[in-house]
Design a protein around this nucleic acid. Structure first.
Length: 439
DNA sequence: TCTGGGGTCCTAGGACCC
DNA sequence: TCTGGGGTCCTAGGACCC
């Protein structure tokens, strides 16, 4: 997300001048959001689960201290959770999305140049603020976010985005720094890099760290000092950029405008397996509706639609998965059209006799909805009317809650719906679930 | 018997991120 | 019993063209 699209992918574009980047990162974001509305969670181990209550995807510091790993399946942790009285919550994305917007709105007051990198992270450019004490300024940002939203953040400052990431990790690690670390005005950058394991560097994943370790590269400083030729050969242009960033040469600019998505995915695991074609089509209708909404919200049309189904890959039942892509006669953002094609694909890939765990739809071949390719051999629908209708439906669903108006093929009972046994109320986005205070 | 080479476009798959 | 979802970028290799 948020990466620059280099026209020549094998080249490295360097920044002309010195930069100051700050990376602001919400601490244990989902767990922190839950705490704000439920003070009973304060100082207690808290974990938030993935969709369908499958894995642990956010942990409070207390939960981390108990040794609960990121991404652990819930059932593997049940004994520990019970013994240590860990508080467990299903994920509540309506709440997290809304809290994220509040945090980002606050950050924007501290610099006009901001890149919202993910739901819980943003880069700020602090160019032009050189006259200020960076650490003090960052502490002010931190205090303001905390006061307005209740969310604790950590801030790392560096000459490149990658160094700001390094600084952010350092800020979290050493409590003496009070969640702020400035690597621009730090005399011993190399010492900090030397203490950072290479697998913790932004952009170094499992595979690359294995290769690097094999060549004796264990920390970020060693990576920084590798010969360019070796890096280019073994780590492609991505690794090359990364090493330069560690050397303080900015190659990853701040992306302030959000480019439209090139692909839109919507998929969910089922609460319980689905065997019948009708159930799969019903779930698929719902997911296609969501995907089409996302498509319209960025004023795009999709030219390709892919549908896939899969059984559970983890158990030893007979496994089956399949996916088929279909090229639409002309690009569309019309939910009804997309559902019709999605269903046709589903009928093709469905095989009787399997217990399906998941289905999903992926829309790609994205084009802006105002410069659609005209195909003179295909009869076009009345696009203006269609757009008006869809906008009206979107507006109603936005105001009164999604699925206020829904397609009949989406079903009413939805027995396949994902598990959310521990979900907190949508405090900030639903009037009927707003927080009440008893006096 | 001899059997080119270079360019572009597209796709699948891998790797990474949060 | 129980294992998330949604993105981006890069490269290699095949198809196709001249």
């Amino acid at each position: 997300m948020g990466r620059r699209d280099h026209s020549d992918s094998s080249s490295i574009t360097m920044a002309a001048t010195d930069h100051i980047f700050a990376l602001i990162d919400c601490n244990n974001f989902y767990a922190s959001c839950e705490r704000i509305f439920n003070p009973g969670l304060e100082k207690k181990p808290v974990v938030v689960l993935s969709n369908n209550d499958g894995c642990i995807i956010s942990r409070s510091n207390e939960a981390k201290a108990l040794g609960i790993p990121m991404g652990a399946p819930l059932f593997e942790m049940q004994a520990l959770i019970k013994k240590q009285e860990v508080k467990v919550l299903s994920s509540n994305y309506a709440l997290y999305g809304d809290m994220s917007q509040r945090v980002m709105a606050t950050l924007m007051e501290f610099s006009p140049d901001i890149e919202i990198y993910s739901i819980d992270e943003a880069f700020l450019s602090l160019n032009g603020f050189e006259h200020k004490n960076m650490t003090d300024y960052a502490q002010t940002i931190r205090a303001t976010v905390k006061q307005r939203t209740g969310i604790p953040v950590s801030i790392g400052i560096g000459a490149t985005k990658t160094l700001a990431k390094v600084a952010n990790k350092a800020a979290k690690k050493n409590s003496a720094w009070q969640s702020v670390f400035d690597l621009v005005n730090h005399p011993y950058v190399d010492e900090v890099l030397e203490k950072m394991p290479v697998e913790n560097v932004w952009g170094i994943g499992r595979s690359l760290s294995k290769t690097l370790n094999r060549h004796g590269v264990l920390n970020a400083l060693q990576l920084k000092n590798l010969p360019d030729t070796w890096i280019r050969k073994n780590m492609t242009v991505v690794g090359h950029r990364l090493a330069w960033e560690l050397r303080g040469i900015s190659c990853l600019p701040l992306d302030m405008v959000v480019p439209p998505k090139k692909g839109i995915m919507c998929s969910r695991s089922f609460g319980k397996p689905v065997t019948a074609l009708e159930g799969l089509k019903e779930a698929l209708s719902n997911y296609t509706t969501r995907a089409a909404e996302k498509l319209r919200s960025q004023n795009s049309l999709a030219g390709l639609i892919m549908v896939y189904i899969t059984t559970n890959p983890f158990n030893d039942m007979p496994y089956y998965s399949n996916a088929v892509t279909f090229s639409l006669p002309f690009p569309s953002a019309n939910t009804a059209v997309l559902i019709r094609h999605a269903h046709q694909i589903m009928e093709k890939i469905y095989k009787d006799g399997y217990a399906y765990k998941k289905t999903g739809v992926f829309l790609s071949g994205i084009v802006p909805d105002n410069q659609m390719q005209r195909d003179m051999f295909v009869k076009e629908p009345d696009l203006v009317r269609e757009k008006k209708l869809l906008r009206a439906v979107d507006a109603i669903n936005y105001q009164f809650g999604s699925d206020t108006i829904q397609y009949a093929s989406s079903g009413m009972i939805k027995p396949w719906r994902m598990k959310q046994a521990y979900r907190s109320p949508r405090f900030t986005t639903r009037w009927d679930e707003i927080l009440t205070v008893k006096i």
